[in-house]
């Protein structure tokens, strides 16, 4: 399956595994991370709120680093880290009730996406050769991907205002004192942040740095969500996923017995018509329970490179 992801630049190369809840994102992420860890230092980052990864990792995961992230806990951590700063800077917030202000941050629409964006930034900065990200629900993931561009636009506007402030301060100092050297920490910070998020955006849209892997199963809603993700990536991000994985494909005799053969064939044809590298993963006879079970997927995968 790794061969279908080329070009894979270094370092790190980030794989974003996207799909509807329950389609096997975590299993595919773990499989990919296992394969990549044979080639180089690999980090598997799971933001899956269902924490499916935990059941595979009771005995650890040799050869790779695994990090299970809860977006809710991360938000809480950021909120508590900044509470003292806000309290000291803005006494009037105590009149508003600081807790309520912190709730605004905590429950603000988009907070999960913002935390995920920061996790992406740290993934690209990490010292690994590969980072596999088992993403949160599709909506959060797609909005996060769009957010880096929005951040850059916000920061650009702030920089415009700030540059004008610095220019005015300089003019006043020159006029009243005759000479002036202006160093503005705020502007420096804004430039630094714009550079960081522009860099993240470049990485997210580079095939060398990032592979998008869409996972689905032969059922209507997961297929629909895969289509929506594909459209978003093509139209908004101007990029093509490296791989589409059709997971849990039933053997034909079983599908026929269950009356699902026709629908399954239709979905297979649909995936083939996408003109994207794809992998078809046959349904396993039993549920995956341990890390070693994931390796069994190897004999169930058929990869088609376009």
């Amino acid at each position: 399956m790794i061969e279908a992801l080329k070009p894979v630049g270094c370092c790190p190369h980030v794989l974003l595994v996207i799909g509807k809840g329950g389609v096997g994102k975590t299993t595919i992420s773990l499989y990919l991370a296992r394969q990549l860890s044979k080639r180089g230092k690999t980090l598997l980052l799971s933001l899956d709120p269902a924490r499916h990864l935990r059941k595979y990792l009771a005995d650890g995961a040799p050869g790779m680093e695994v990090s299970l992230i809860s977006l809710e806990k991360e938000i809480e951590e950021i909120v508590s880290r900044h509470a003292d700063l806000l309290r000291s800077l803005m006494p009037s917030l105590s009149a508003f009730n600081l807790d309520e202000v912190m709730d605004i941050v905590r429950y603000s629409p988009g907070a999960e996406e913002e935390v995920f964006l920061r996790k992406l930034l740290s993934a690209y900065r990490s010292k690994n050769e590969y980072v596999v990200i088992d993403t949160p629900p599709t909506g959060v993931t797609l909005r996060t991907l769009a957010l880096s561009k929005l951040y850059v636009a916000w920061l650009d506007r702030l920089i415009q205002v700030r540059e004008r402030i610095v220019a005015l301060r300089y003019t006043i100092a020159r006029t009243t004192r005759g000479e002036a050297t202006i160093r503005d920490k705020a502007l420096e910070r804004l430039y630094q942040m714009r550079e960081e998020y522009s860099w993240l955006e470049r990485n997210l849209t580079s095939a060398e740095s990032t592979s998008y892997v869409l996972v689905t199963i032969p059922e209507p809603l997961p297929m629909y969500e895969m289509e929506e993700s594909l459209r978003f990536l093509r139209e908004r991000m101007k990029l093509k996923p490296k791989l589409v994985v059709l997971n849990r494909v039933l053997p034909e005799d079983v599908a026929m017995r269950l009356g699902l053969l026709e629908a399954q064939r239709r979905y297979l044809k649909h995936i083939e018509a996408l003109e994207i590298n794809h992998a078809v993963v046959e349904h396993l006879e039993r549920p995956l329970e341990a890390l070693e079970d994931v390796d069994e997927l190897e004999r169930k995968i058929k990869v088609v490179v376009k």
Partner: peptide, 28 residues
């Protein structure tokens, strides 16, 4: 623009504001 989101005048997201605030302490 930076602090508005904490008091109901939302111009940008609160987490971006917090991130900026770390670098703007002297300014504030």
């Amino acid at each position: 623009m930076i602090l508005g989101s904490f008091v109901g005048v939302r111009t940008m997201t609160p987490l971006l504001s917090l991130e900026l605030l770390e670098g703007l302490q002297e300014e504030v």
